[in-house]
Nucleic acid binder design. Structure first.
Lengths: 346, 346
DNA sequence: CTGAAAGCGCTTACAG
DNA sequence: CTGAAAGCGCTTACAG
């Protein structure tokens, strides 16, 4: 006599289902469903009974069934440009943690800074009817924006706040990139540097915002010179930072400080300076951006702007969770600020 | 007169469904389903008709419905210890890419090297009835192993190959960590170093395997000395590498080479040496492991072992994809090797 | 506040 | 090789 007495014809999974719970609690599945989801309009004692039964049977709802019936899954799509920049990994990790604690699974997508790829990814991920989407930046194709809007899925943008020209009815968590760029440049000016170059790679929207801050600060000081901009569309890396540093120092010996748009470039520059015997900050000052791993270990330690990406990831997740529940955030554009970290390089 | 003429009572999503396709192709949904999934036992001409209809209607199957009906989703769970080590991010990115190209979504889980957390994560992820799981290493709790086995979901282990003592009936893609440790140590010995320390953090299973390789090589040369082992359970980092380097150099001045179990430690040591004015490799040689970003940029460039993590992630995904289709891999334990990279530090 | 019933969009025995 | 029907495990109008 087998212990497992599942009815003959049934295609049973062996899984505890909602009707098992309902039966054990002596209610209908509708009531059990409502009780478990904390939907109001269920008598308190029934709620208790159902919860007890669920607990006792170790019931766990089936995500697929729930998604199919409610047309909304427990997934959240998270779109990032790259995984090779720890910045985005920090964002991802923090968001994922917050999401997971509320029972949501992260579906990540890597766009490689490509709007086409982002669009395609969005199309795929939206098929899963995610409960929400978290997307990096504000620079998306019209089609992408339409996909999101058309899906009716709540969305929070990461890193950038809306610019004045942007759509007003959207949510974001980040900080003012231009302001950070301006303040870092201001620091350099206060230290007495006069010919401050801006060196950047990747050239995504955020980098350009930092550049505009740099420009604004120099213009205000009457020190702006367009030939001090060094822009390279290639991917950011230590090696590229070294190359750019050499170029700048060689072609523009009068430059007394360099603002690299990202710490990896700055770290590479520092290494290159060491190799070439160029003293930092005596001969040329160097600053970076983001305060990535290792920037406190370089020689000299790197002066940079610390960006709150873990807090951004987490706060954005919380905002999204609220939107999913139908709450309107009191601050649709959440500015988490940044911090100037003065170390030895400038 | 509204364009959208969906029948009044229906709770329609507006989505194109399989029955739309079936109707358009003039077949039953069963046949449409089979034709689309390439299940045999469908007449060739019907297959063509159905595919044409699906194409024309831009039909995309609903993942939730499919998961519910087939009791298998299009998710693949990928368990990683950490995201803060680029090693694992490389693994993730490569696996995700391969999986996605076949229509599978990655559900990642971060275990923080904690077997309890891994178990919990597995429990959660298995609820989604993933089509497969990719899991780092071979050091799992018995309960975790049981969860995987009990779920019937195919699983491939990443990074480590099975040790002789391990279960035979399992799949893995990686390389021989002990062998790599031994060869790197052999390189040091051939260069004439005689007192080779082993410095490690994190102390996960793979690190210990590298250490056993180091020990084996030294023993074979009659040079093994247990007091040359420096083990620190803390997380690996540049800063810790610097600290360990200082300790070793100070407490054991006779040490002429140090094998750091990971490049970040070695990079930190190199930076520390620069700060302290200790010449590498003249006073002490340094080698790392993994060939992480920046190891070719340090001063001097770091001698290390390049590990094929992108290839591992991709090959593991392919093996898993095969298993999902019911294929048995010709090589259950796929050894992808490693490469000694000799640069300036040793 | 509660329940019976329909429905979400697929897959899969089963019968032919 | 093909189709009608049941079923996967939930949610949600609808009626009371």
């Amino acid at each position: 006599m087998p212990l497992d007495r599942s009815p003959p014809g049934r295609r049973t999974t062996g899984r505890i289902t909602l009707s098992d719970v309902a039966r054990a609690a002596g209610v209908s599945t509708s009531t059990a469903s409502r009780a478990l989801r904390g939907e109001r309009a269920v008598a308190p004692d029934l709620i208790a009974q159902v919860q007890a039964a669920a607990q006792r049977l170790a019931y766990v709802p089936d995500p697929a069934a729930r998604a199919l019936a409610s047309r909304r899954s427990d997934h959240v799509a998270v779109l990032l440009p790259l995984l090779s920049n720890t910045l985005f990994v920090d964002l991802l990790e923090a968001a994922q943690k917050a999401l997971r604690s509320q029972g949501y699974q992260t579906l990540m997508g890597v766009t490689h800074y490509d709007r086409q790829e982002e669009e395609q990814l969005l199309r795929e991920l939206l098929l899963h009817r995610p409960a929400g989407v978290l997307i990096t930046g504000r620079d998306h194709s019209p089609a992408s924006l339409e996909l999101i809007a058309g899906s009716g899925v709540p969305c929070v943008h990461l890193m950038d706040l809306a610019d004045a020209s942007g759509p007003l009815l959207s949510y974001s968590v980040g900080f003012d990139q231009a302001q950070a760029g301006a303040e870092l440049t201001g620091h350099l000016l206060r230290k007495g540097y006069r010919r401050v170059a801006f060196a950047a790679a990747q050239l995504d929207a955020r980098v350009m915002q930092r550049m505009s801050g740099w420009r604004r600060a120099l213009q205000a000081a009457g020190l702006y010179d367009p030939t001090l901009e060094w822009l390279n569309p290639a991917a950011s890396s230590l090696a590229l930072g070294g190359q750019m540093f050499e170029q700048i120092v060689q072609q523009r010996p009068a430059v007394d400080a360099i603002f690299f748009c990202n710490d990896d470039l700055a770290q590479g520059a520092l290494l290159c300076a060491l190799r070439r015997g160029i003293r930092v900050p005596e001969q040329v000052a160097i600053v970076g951006f983001n305060d990535l791993t290792g920037s406190d270990q370089t020689l000299p330690p790197l002066t940079t702007v610390r960006t709150p990406r873990a807090r951004i990831g987490e706060a954005a997740a919380q905002m999204l969770l609220g939107l999913i529940k139908g709450q309107t955030p009191e601050q649709p554009q959440l500015d988490l600020g940044f911090e100037l970290i003065e170390r030895g390089s400038a």
